[in-house]
């Protein structure tokens, strides 16, 4: 069910300023790929180009292409809105819609596409998605209560449920556990592991241990100096990156010499 992503010579610009330079990589389906690197190295920026979310910022542009199973997401016939329906995103801080219930949150994305769902169909989607996010048993008795009444970890799992309700082929996660306590983090990490067999997952993380726990492949980004663009330094099997990286910068980063 997951799809393969090929990035070809991607540059990311904010106005005239180049934020990320010449990234090329392959992201395998049904796997977790982690992006690591120091602050400001462009990994989040790059992540957001995969579902064209960077376009929300004024004057943000890209050069190059990103192919989803061979289709170029940046070709002129493709509508960014459509891209985001196929490539889901989970953000750094849980952001369920504050005025909606748990049930309404899960269905929010679906309702954008098909306005008419029978109650049975809707219930089924809610249950499947919440189960898929390991949240159903905890909230099945209060599906109509306020989403923001839950704990941080539960809210983040709700956001994941909301994203997977859309049945995307790719799930992008931008530091999804950085605002959560360790127990919730563990729950989310377990979830990521379970989801990986059906989705292509890309996770940006500051936490190297998390990357090594959760991902099969890891990409290390770095920035040479302030004002310079970020670059992809090395990408390989997670075990290799963390035990025996090919690049000296990678070695320095994972051994804590900077970052």
């Amino acid at each position: 069910m997951g799809q393969r992503i090929d990035v070809e010579h991607l540059d990311v610009f904010y106005g005239k300023f180049m934020a990320v330079e010449n990234v090329s990589m392959t992201i395998n389906p049904n796997q977790v790929t982690a992006f690591i690197g120091p602050s400001g190295c462009g990994k989040s920026t790059f992540l957001r180009t995969i579902n064209r979310m960077h376009e929300m910022t004024d004057k943000a542009t890209v050069k190059g292409s990103i192919l989803l199973e061979g289709r170029n997401l940046y070709s002129s016939e493709i509508d960014p809105v459509q891209v985001r329906r196929e490539v889901g995103m989970v953000f750094q801080r849980p952001n369920p819609f504050p005025t909606m219930s748990i049930r309404q949150n899960v269905l929010a994305g679906i309702k954008l596409n098909n306005k008419s769902l029978t109650k049975a169909q809707a219930d089924e989607i809610v249950e499947t998605s919440l189960k898929g996010a390991n949240l159903f048993n905890e909230v099945k008795d209060r599906l109509d209560s306020a989403a923001i009444g839950m704990s941080g970890g539960q809210q983040q799992r709700l956001c994941i449920a909301r994203a997977i309700a859309m049945k995307p082929s790719v799930l992008l996660m931008d530091e999804p556990c950085s605002a959560l306590d360790p127990i919730s983090t563990l729950a989310v990490e377990d979830l990521i592991y379970e989801l990986s067999s059906n989705y292509t997952i890309v996770i940006v993380t500051h936490n190297m241990q998390q990357a090594s726990r959760v991902s099969q492949r890891t990409a290390f980004f770095n920035i040479s100096d302030v004002g310079k663009p970020g670059r992809l330094i090395e990408m390989d099997q997670t075990t290799k990156i963390f035990s025996n990286p090919s690049n000296q910068q990678t070695e320095n980063y994972i051994s804590g010499k900077f970052g």
Binding site: N51, M53, M56, V81, Q82, V83, R84, R85, E86, G88, M89, F91, R93, N95, P96, F97, P98, T99, M100, A108, G109, L112, N113, C159, R162, A163, M166
Partner: peptide
């Protein structure tokens, strides 16, 4: 309107008007 709520809507593939309906109008009600 909190940027986070706006991003949540866009992230689900909402058009600008749909984003307004999902995030802005309820927030500002």
């Amino acid at each position: 309107t909190p940027h986070l709520d706006i991003e949540a809507a866009y992230g689900l593939g909402a058009t600008k008007w749909e984003m307004i309906r999902l995030s802005v109008l309820p927030y500002g009600a």
